[in-house]
Amino acid sequence: MTLWPRLLIVIAGLYGAGGVALAAVSAHLTGGASLAIAANFLLFHAAALVALAAVAGQVAHMRAVLLVGASALALGALLFSGDLTLRALMEIKLLGGSAPFGGMLMIAGWLVVGASALFGRRA
């Protein structure tokens, strides 16, 4: 496995751990709905990143496109969940528009992942 998919799996592990931690914190805080949403996004995308890294080893054509899509998912989830978490715990915004930009980046990433399947061939 090359470096790029390995990094995605490392990120997935961090997102999985962070998602579990945020879910636990959200269960104990009043108004933890934003944290629960952030936890869900991290957990869902952690599983998706592991799967996409594994699939990247099975396709030859459009592999880079698949990994770009997966990377967009990773960055989008970080921005989206990070912004929600900071708002909930510290009452500050990460950056202006981080959550919406992160959400749009995740949508774009999923579209790129889907498009890579249309053109991919097995290795």
Rank of each mutant, 00 (worst) to 15 (best):
T2F: 08
W4K: 04
W4V: 11
P5D: 11
R6A: 14
L8V: 07
Y15G: 07
G16Q: 01
G18D: 06
V20K: 00
V25I: 14
S26Q: 03
L29R: 15
L29F: 13
T30Y: 01
G32A: 04
G32C: 06
A33D: 05
S34C: 02
S34V: 01
A36H: 14
A36S: 13
I37E: 08
A38C: 09
N40K: 14
F41Y: 15
L43V: 06
A46S: 15
A47M: 12
A47V: 13
V55C: 02
G57W: 14
Q58C: 00
H61K: 13
R63I: 05
R63P: 03
A64Y: 02
L66E: 00
G69H: 03
A70N: 05
L73P: 05
L75R: 07
A77T: 14
L78R: 02
L79E: 08
G82Y: 02
L86W: 04
R87Q: 13
R87F: 04
A88H: 06
A88D: 00
L89H: 08
M90Y: 09
K93G: 12
G97N: 02
G97H: 02
S98G: 09
A99E: 10
A99I: 03
F101V: 13
G102I: 00
G102D: 05
M104V: 10
L105M: 12
I107V: 14
A108I: 11
L111I: 10
L118Q: 07
G120Y: 06
R122Y: 09
